[in-house]
Design a protein around this nucleic acid. Structure first.
Lengths: 137, 137
DNA sequence: CTTGCCTCTGACGTCAACGTCAGGTCCTAG
DNA sequence: CTAGGACCTGACGTTGACGTCAGAGGCAAG
């Protein structure tokens, strides 16, 4: 056991402001504020009200981006993130995770079908001999 | 050679109206009219102005749906469909097809990464022992 | 002929994930 | 101390793919 209980709380905690987080995570400042508005991202505030983020915020933002990219809505992401954060382990949360995993699986399958279909079109486009055959399937 | 040149032009050409096409292709009537508005779908018109579609429209609508599902915009789909229809074979059209195929490929790769990430979360959620390790990548 | 369902053309509403602008504050360099 | 860049909070604008409603016409059955 080498200090598993307390995640590096002795570090100087280098923080950054919203602009740096934006450039480092590759999203806009506006998007970050939007994420906070949706409850997906929290920030410490300085006395003057400026947001300050720890390093791990970069990773979190990228995770959020991944989930957005997978077609999840902010509401759904909001429901999933607690599972990530605290390892919430209710039956509902696990069902939720499984459901979204399944959704993503199906989405991948659909995309593969689409790609195959596009490949057929490309094949025709590069060899226009037998066009009729694969269009009507 | 068994009549490859003329696609079955002697058939009675069973047609359907918009409602049937909608139910059979699984989209709304509104969506079909929208597709037509975007130039993705054409229809014969009866004297009274009602749309009539041939059987193959079902397939075409499903293709359109696939492409929408792959995240393509109607403008992009509009640019791709001529390649399907007429086998248009310009360098540009082939480049276009290849580009969209690549986009879909990347999208699939991204989704797989997301799924893997979600799998990691799920693993934690079902065995909360070693939580900290995989969250920060 | 009427009833009921389908269809037509506008045209406005919606929703999510931001973009953009306004008007003011903060803070660091010179 | 001051200039200019980063930041703040509203708040309205945008875009795409439709939903929805209004008002009118078409069509097969009874």
């Amino acid at each position: 056991m080498v200090g598993v209980t307390m995640p590096q709380s002795t570090m100087p905690e280098t923080t950054m402001r919203i602009g740096e987080l934006a450039t480092r995570s590759g999203v806009s400042v506006r998007a970050l504020r939007y994420y906070e508005e949706q409850g997906l991202l929290t920030a410490e505030r300085s006395d003057s009200g400026q947001r300050h983020y720890p390093e791990r915020a970069v990773d979190r933002v990228q995770l959020i981006q991944m989930l957005y990219g997978a077609g999840l809505s902010s509401r759904t992401i909001l429901e999933l993130l607690p599972c990530v954060d605290a390892g919430v382990n209710t039956p509902e949360s696990r069902a939720r995770l499984a459901a979204e995993r399944k959704r993503i699986d199906e989405q991948i399958a659909g995309l593969i079908r689409t790609r195959d279909r596009l490949d057929a079109v490309i094949a025709v486009s590069e060899n226009p001999a037998n066009g009729c055959t694969l269009i009507h399937d």
